[in-house]
Structure formats: structure tokens, C-alpha cells
């Protein structure tokens, strides 16, 4: 059962996070706190024209939140604002069970989280931060 939640892919992103760090003078710098557990994430992004040219994350949290943040940075790199928004909405609807996780997709590693409602907020924390950053005019 734990193998369904803490999959190889999640643990890989957790222990070897991609794009962890900060960006100087970013277009988006959004800090979000998970009030349930006190975990926090800061998401940074830089745009070149309409495209995400760099995205990084910082903060501290559980394996689920950190792995999900790491996977998000890979997913959103190079995307247009519209495509990024679509990715985020798509991810959140998968996490709420409204849409299916596509097979053969890294994000499907997070599928197990759905069975643990208290952990869904961990998985969506960074995604919410990025979305908020874009909505706030970043």
C-alpha cells in the first residue's frame, strides 16, 4: 500500500529534486503555506515573452509536496501562460478525482495520493502557488 503512495518516481523527485532553488528578479515569486501542517513552498518563474523560461521552487515539506513541486517545474518549463494554466487546472482536476490520470505519465505517480484526502493539499501546494502567481499578474 505504501508503495502505491510513495512510488519510485515520487521518491526520486523527493530525494533528487529538479529545479530546486531561487531565481533573481523573477516574474513570479509566490509563497504558500499549507495551514494543515505548516509546510511551505515558494515558486519562482521567469517568462520570456509568453513562455516560461525558468521555474524553480524552494521551501520545506513532505515527500509528496516536494516531489509534486519538482514534477511541476519540469512540466511547466517552456509552456505558454495559457498552456501552464491548462496544465495546472488539469492536474488539480486529476487530484480531485474529476479526471483520470493519463497512463505513461510521470504525474500518474501521484495517483495514490487521492486515497489520502488529507495529503491532496500537499500535492497541489506548488501548483496552487504557481497559479496564484500568474493570476496576481506575474
Amino acid at each position: 500500500m505504501m508503495r502505491e503512495l510513495y512510488t519510485q518516481i515520487i521518491m526520486d523527485h523527493y530525494q533528487r529534486p529538479r529545479n530546486r532553488g531561487e531565481i533573481d528578479n523573477p516574474d513570479i515569486e509566490e509563497h504558500l503555506l499549507n495551514p494543515l501542517c505548516g509546510d511551505e513552498v515558494t515558486v519562482y518563474a521567469l517568462f520570456e515573452g509568453d513562455k516560461v523560461s525558468d521555474v524553480k521552487f524552494g521551501g520545506r515539506g513532505c515527500a509528496i509536496s516536494q516531489a509534486s513541486a519538482s514534477m511541476m517545474t519540469e512540466r511547466l518549463m517552456g509552456k505558454s501562460r495559457e498552456a501552464a494554466e491548462k496544465e495546472i487546472k488539469g492536474f488539480k482536476s486529476m487530484m480531485t478525482g474529476e479526471t483520470e490520470f493519463p497512463e505513461m505519465d510521470d504525474l500518474a505517480a501521484l495517483k495514490g495520493v487521492i486515497q489520502y484526502p488529507s495529503r491532496i493539499k500537499c500535492a497541489t501546494l506548488a501548483w496552487n502557488a504557481f497559479q496564484k502567481g500568474m493570476n496576481d499578474g506575474g
Binding site: M1, M2, L5, Y6, C37, D39, R60, G61, C62, A63, I64, Y116, R119, C122
Partner: peptide, 12 residues
Amino acid sequence: VHPHDLSQLLDE
């Protein structure tokens, strides 16, 4: 191991 992950693993 983050406390959140710990309590999840212990629950198991």
C-alpha cells in the same frame, strides 16, 4: 523523513 510522511508510514 518528514513528520507528515512518518505519520503516514506509521499509520500503515
